[in-house]
Amino acid sequence: MKRGTIPFWVFAALLPAAAYGLPILGMNEYYFYISYIVLQYVVLATAWNILGGYAGYVNFGTGAFFGAGAYAALVVMLLFEAPLVVQIAVAALVGALMGLGAGLLTLRLKGIFFSIATIAVAIIIETFVLNWRFVGGATGVQIIRGPVTYGFETHTRMLFFVMSVLAVASLVIARYIETSWLGRGLQALRDAEVAAECSGVPTLRLKLIACAVSGALMAAAGAPLPLYSSFVEPHSVFSLNYSVMALSMAVIGGMARWWGPALGAVLIASSQQFAAFASPEFHLLIVGLLLIFVVIAAPGGLVGVIQWVGNWRVSRKEINRSASVVK
């Protein structure tokens, strides 16, 4: 077993347990409300990183997948009164299929052309929903929430727990990909795609897997949204903002490790909640400046900085040890 495996699984089990147990402490409802958003961004940034970080394909369609997940959940809710678990599963399936479809259409494009194509895909999907009467078109739909289930006191608390499970699931998946043959193949194709292909890596298949997994997680993150805000409307749900945020969180947190995007998401999304008292534009400005700083000065993001400090301490120790040997 690799070092860190046991602490990881302990953490993976503790986060949802804590999310379940927290309400006992009698915390203010508001904290559940904003923590839900923070965890939602953990899922989005982690999902974005599977394609953007590991494979190096920069996707600007996060909002399209997120929105498609929200609408897929909405549709099965309106049609069949499906429970939340089913809504999430359907949303994930829709996201995976969308990822595969979009991947087949766009993955033969490289670099900036791929990114532009993902924006086009996002616009097409938003336009489709805008003209879909059943889900309210441009005006959206108001949802009447049923009674709270599973022994939770409020919807917000239940959804916070659900999102913590999704966050852990996305981290487990990202970590698996990173440490498996998939991760090595994606890294190889990111570094030199033709050379990877000639070294036996089925690059197209790997990119499609990354697209499908990334799309499924993004859509799953959007699935609880109709219940959370009891209102869904295309313009805000399909916002380009989700793409920009997911990308920024992954880049600032660090794209090389599974915990980088999550770290970026926690820092940026929670600071966003505090800065919301000042102004959202101000927060966006700060994120933008941070992004520029990281790209120029610390391309490894926080992950890179933390690893660098770690290496520096190890090498200091070694220097001290060899110095004492000399003495």
């Binding site: 043959w181 090595r184 193949g185 890294q187 190889a188 990111r190 570094d191 030199a192 033709v194 050379a195 990877a196 070294s199 036996g200 890596v201 089925p202 090389a256």
Partner: peptide, 21 residues
């Protein structure tokens, strides 16, 4: 066209994992 973010050894892991596994 090396896999530039990997060590020399890990560059070889790619064909080892994907071709002669």
């Amino acid at each position: 066209r090396p896999f530039s973010s990997m060590s020399v050894e890990d560059n070889l892991m790619v064909p080892l994992e994907y071709v002669v596994h």
